[in-house]
Design a binder for these strands. Structure first.
Lengths: 235, 235
DNA sequence: CAGTGGTCTAGACCACCGA
DNA sequence: CGGTGGTCTAGACCACTGG
């Protein structure tokens, strides 16, 4: 029995195949653990592992006392990952560069303070940058940082180390929320992104939490004509 | 030992807590299975399940022969799900309605044919609708469907059953790819979405596969002022 | 080599469901 | 009640890693 594919994987693939070919449709019953035990000649724990993993992956739904069923597949979900723009550009085999537009300590407005979990008037760090891919601007980054999580934030050389990368190192990410929006750029954004003020832009508004503190809130503006978020769902 | 939280969950939460508080940082070693066995007084299989699940969830990375480590958290990913717009609206406690603008059989253009895996000039189904939430337009849906996967597509009453819902029933989803973009609406889109032609719109371009066939390609246009995709990452 | 995780077994007890 | 999944055990053998 050496150099064989693990038994639990054989069971998983058996099930997956029947689902992806459409032979078993949404709501159909998947063979019970007892049946699969006999069919594959393996122990129940191994069958259970296969079915549990498929359940965790959202491919089947298990109900105690009832059985295992093919899940509704319109809930399969894709991976939208938080990535450092520099990493992303380099991975495409292109050159990343950045231009620092602003880097200062400010008194927080009511809105910013609220987002960061601080009081209005508290001190916050504010940076704005433009990121370029092969010399073409692709992202306008407007970011407020909670001084508590990175006291030395403003001393960073943001051209080589992006704010995202710096913060990920200083304050390990424990939670984040985002919103993807579309809107027209401000005059400043349009100028630095080198687009018309009438060009639709894609916006990623992001709020990151590290431990007990909100680490930062950022608004990442991309030219609609040069950027999109793409992804894939796979059963 | 009854009505207790399952042992594997206790182990998972123990680990998660140490990570989310920042006590264990990226790259740190997580206690070995043997250690946790003794610490919790449970069997190795149970510890193994806890760690395996955390690994599947991306929270830790396991390396045979080396140990278990806190994973790099900047790759945590969120769930962007394919949802039926009607379901989504109803779930918000609002009323969904739709207006059918076009529903016909056409000869596929080169571009559409390519997307659907057909030849130019082949017959395809084409529908366009506006979806409204409490009477306010929120999505302009422009869709081409492969007749092979749903011969009776055009006979559907799209006001009660959205194209998405109909297709999910007819052709179980096995794969999908999408792209989120920003752009200005066409004159027609602006008119039916009741927005200015200068308002930035959010676009979800989606291609769904069912078994061996491409089922459909759709372009879903949302008013930027009334819609966004939001989500959350959690460690 | 000793320590790690990867997989598997043959049992077991329980909670839940439908008939 | 019998069948289902949910959990757990106490072993086992293996492959991989580092020193």
């Amino acid at each position: 029995m050496s150099h064989m594919k693990p038994a639990y994987l054989r069971v998983k693939q058996f099930i997956q195949q029947h689902i992806s070919t459409g032979e078993w449709r949404t709501g159909d019953v998947v063979p019970s653990e007892a049946t699969l035990m006999q069919q594959f000649g393996i122990s129940r724990m191994t069958v259970n592992r296969a079915l549990s993993e498929l359940s965790a992956e959202g491919l089947v739904k298990r109900v105690q006392g009832l059985g295992t069923f093919v899940a509704e597949l319109h809930r399969i979900s894709s991976n939208l990952t938080i990535r450092d723009i520099q990493e992303e550009v380099v991975e495409r085999g292109h050159v990343h560069s950045a231009r620092l537009l602003l880097s200062q300590e400010e008194k927080a407005s009511a809105e910013v303070a609220h987002s960061l979990g601080l009081a209005a008037g508290d001190s916050v760090f504010h940076t704005t940058l433009v990121h370029l891919e092969n010399g073409v601007p692709i992202q306008f980054e407007d970011r407020y940082v909670n001084p508590a999580v990175s006291p030395g934030y403003l001393d960073t050389n943001f051209i080589n180390i992006t704010p995202t990368r710096h913060l990920l190192k200083e304050a390990p990410l424990t939670e984040a929320s985002y919103s993807i929006e579309a809107c027209l750029p401000t005059a400043e954004q349009a100028r630095y992104l080198d687009v018309s003020p009438q060009e639709a832009c894609l916006v990623m508004a992001r709020r990151t939490v590290s431990g007990r503190h909100v680490a930062s809130v950022a608004r990442l503006v991309y030219p609609g004509s040069r950027y999109s978020f793409a992804g894939k769902f796979q059963a």
